[in-house]
């Protein structure tokens, strides 16, 4: 059991890790083919894994409904929405429209999913404003610099800002292209080095905590 839970996954990780790291340097179509096949396997495994997820979701909400926990009505809504969408999706063969006529699935997509998703994303604008009001304070010199930069960029990105302060457009472009790009590159270099180091540790079995279980 220990072999199946510990050694085997590490061996698989080592072999596939080295193979796919090496794949990057091999331009031969066979190597590309291997990458495509592996990604397809991952999709298939991912498909089966979805069963795990859906089971967890159904179980969690079934327990809530069974015990009539606080807010169990939301769980009921989830069941109805999910099963209803699956039913109309199967009925319409996954098509939103057939010969120009909207199917029931199309109706769910256009009149439920589109506005609901749009609403969630639109909330962002309100949250940005409230977060900015609460946090954007010139507590220190650095914070003041940030504040001024933010105001310039916000002005420079809209026609009214450019109309009121004509220089703000060019200044905001400069801030985005020069200051912002260089800082992001610096962060990216750090992130990339960290990711490469973590990848090496995983490939060579130095980092194992993601497998669950502690030290052997």
């Amino acid at each position: 059991m220990i072999f199946l839970r510990r050694q085997l996954p590490i061996i698989i990780t080592l072999i596939t890790g080295l193979l796919f790291a090496g794949q990057y340097y091999v331009p031969h179509p066979a190597s590309e083919q291997m990458l495509t096949s592996a990604t397809k396997w991952m999709q298939i495994i991912g498909g089966f894994a979805l069963i795990l997820g859906v089971t967890s979701l159904f179980h969690q909400h079934a327990v809530k409904i069974g015990r009539q926990e606080a807010g169990w009505g939301y769980s009921l809504v989830l069941y109805v929405a999910m099963l209803g969408t699956i039913a109309v999706g199967l009925w319409a063969n996954g098509k939103e429209s057939v010969d120009g006529a909207m199917t029931a699935f199309g109706w769910v997509y256009n009149f439920m999913m589109v506005p609901l998703q749009g609403t969630m994303f639109a909330i962002l604008a309100f949250f940005i404003a409230s977060a900015a009001y609460r946090s954007f304070r010139a507590r220190s010199r650095e914070a003041a610099v940030l504040l001024v930069a933010a105001v310039i960029v916000m002005m420079g990105r809209v026609p009214l800002g450019e109309y009121l302060i004509p220089l703000s457009g060019d200044l905001s472009s400069w801030i985005l292209n020069v200051l912002n790009s260089s800082v992001r590159r610096a962060i990216l270099i750090g992130v990339s080095l960290g990711a490469i180091a973590l990848s090496f540790k995983i490939i060579f079995g130095v980092e194992r905590s993601y497998l669950g279980g502690g030290k052997e």
Partner: peptide, 12 residues
């Protein structure tokens, strides 16, 4: 948001 991550995190 991802079932495989969920399974791994359960173990962890």
């Amino acid at each position: 948001r991802e079932p495989i991550t969920m399974a791994v995190c359960q173990e962890i």
